[in-house]
Amino acid sequence: MTAAETVLLIAALLLALLIIGNVGFSKLAAWRNPPIGKFLECDGVVLHYIDRGDPAAPCVVLLHGNGSMIQDFTISGLVDLLARSNRVVCFDRPGFGYSQRPRRRIWTAAAQAALLVKALNQLGIRDPVVLGHSWGAFVAIALGVRKDYPIRGLVLASGYYFPTVRLDVWLMAGPAIPVLGDLVSYTVAPIISWAVLPGALRKIFAPRSVPQTFKNEFPASLVLRPTQLRAAAEESALLIPTAAQFQSYYSTMAHQVQIFHGTEDQVVEHNQARDLHQALPRSDLHLVPNVGHMVTYADPAAIVQAVNSIANS
């Protein structure tokens, strides 16, 4: 065996070990963090969701950001606060938590909204208030502009609404590349993500510290699974094109919109929220001082008040 063949064999063995290790890690992460909600099958996709509060009360639908899952809203306290006077339905969006993300579709915000409309109809939910955080704001807007499903209004938190130059999102989109991205997702991406995750969490919560409840309760190991890393990479790749597409919708949106954004957000500049407020016919802007990207943790009571103002209007 030549030296080159030996190197190739060693590389192949290392890749195989990494793949086996990451598959095993994913199974262990799922065993340690079982689903906290229910499942429904809709349009060939299994969705994981929770349904809390009074079924007869006005409904609020919660949509998390990129790389996250249902627990983001339960740990922040939003689910419990909202459930005092509303029915609260929160989905793991496709590819995150325990919801499937079939590869045969491109999961744009519009595609996710179309799936959620079918899921909400299946659950008998009409006229909800839709709250979207970060990338979830795209899906909330996509629901709001549909003509075949009525909503009461939108609450958008820490969203990205207008295209800008963002080198970081292209760097994060690597695992979404066909074939090569799969190899990266099942080999080095989980290791790299594990290494950078503490710094990433500090950044999204900055200038405040990461809450201890989040450190204790958020199932970070689920975030590091290859399938979820690929889903997050796909949404990173779709961020700027989606904003470019959606900016033409804003002037035609008739729903009441409540916009929340932290003034110290290091992920999405708060000017995005100001510009959206100016573009929308009906909106209220809440710029929260000394708060970063996770504005949902900073003042959940104010967000609940905004939701209830729309739900009861």
Rank of each mutant, 00 (worst) to 15 (best):
M1H: 11
M1D: 15
T2G: 15
A3N: 03
A4R: 13
V7H: 04
L9G: 14
L9S: 12
L13R: 10
L14P: 00
L18F: 08
I20Q: 06
F25P: 05
K27G: 14
A30L: 09
W31L: 11
P34I: 14
K38W: 13
L40V: 14
C42G: 08
V46M: 09
L47Q: 07
D51F: 09
A57H: 04
A57N: 02
V60R: 02
V61Y: 08
L62M: 10
G65C: 00
G65Q: 10
M69V: 01
Q71F: 00
D72E: 15
D72P: 01
D72N: 09
G77Q: 01
L78P: 02
L78Y: 06
L82Q: 04
A83S: 14
R87D: 00
C90R: 02
F91R: 06
D92G: 13
R93P: 05
G97T: 01
S99Y: 01
R101D: 04
R104L: 05
R105Y: 14
A109G: 15
A111T: 11
A111Y: 02
A111S: 14
Q112D: 11
K118W: 01
N121D: 08
L123V: 07
G124R: 07
P128Y: 14
V129D: 12
V130C: 11
F138C: 01
V139L: 05
G144F: 00
V145R: 15
R146L: 10
R146P: 09
Y149V: 11
I151G: 10
G153L: 05
L154M: 09
A157Q: 03
A157K: 12
R166W: 08
L171V: 09
M172V: 09
P175G: 02
P175H: 11
P175L: 04
A176L: 12
P178E: 07
L180K: 11
G181M: 13
L183A: 04
L183H: 00
V184A: 14
Y186P: 03
P190C: 12
I191P: 05
I192T: 13
S193G: 13
V196T: 13
L197D: 13
P198T: 06
G199Y: 04
F205I: 02
P207W: 06
R208W: 01
Q212T: 09
Q212D: 15
N216K: 15
A220S: 11
S221R: 12
Q228T: 15
R230T: 13
A231I: 12
A231C: 07
A231V: 08
E234V: 15
E235L: 08
A237I: 04
L239D: 11
I240D: 13
T252G: 06
H255K: 00
H255T: 08
H255N: 14
Q258F: 00
Q258L: 01
H261Y: 05
T263C: 01
D265V: 03
V267M: 15
V267Y: 02
H270Q: 06
R274M: 13
D275I: 09
H277E: 08
A279M: 01
L285K: 10
H286E: 05
G292Y: 01
G292A: 06
M294N: 01
M294C: 05
V295I: 10
T296Q: 03
A298D: 09
D299E: 15
P300F: 00
V304D: 07
Q305W: 04
A311N: 09
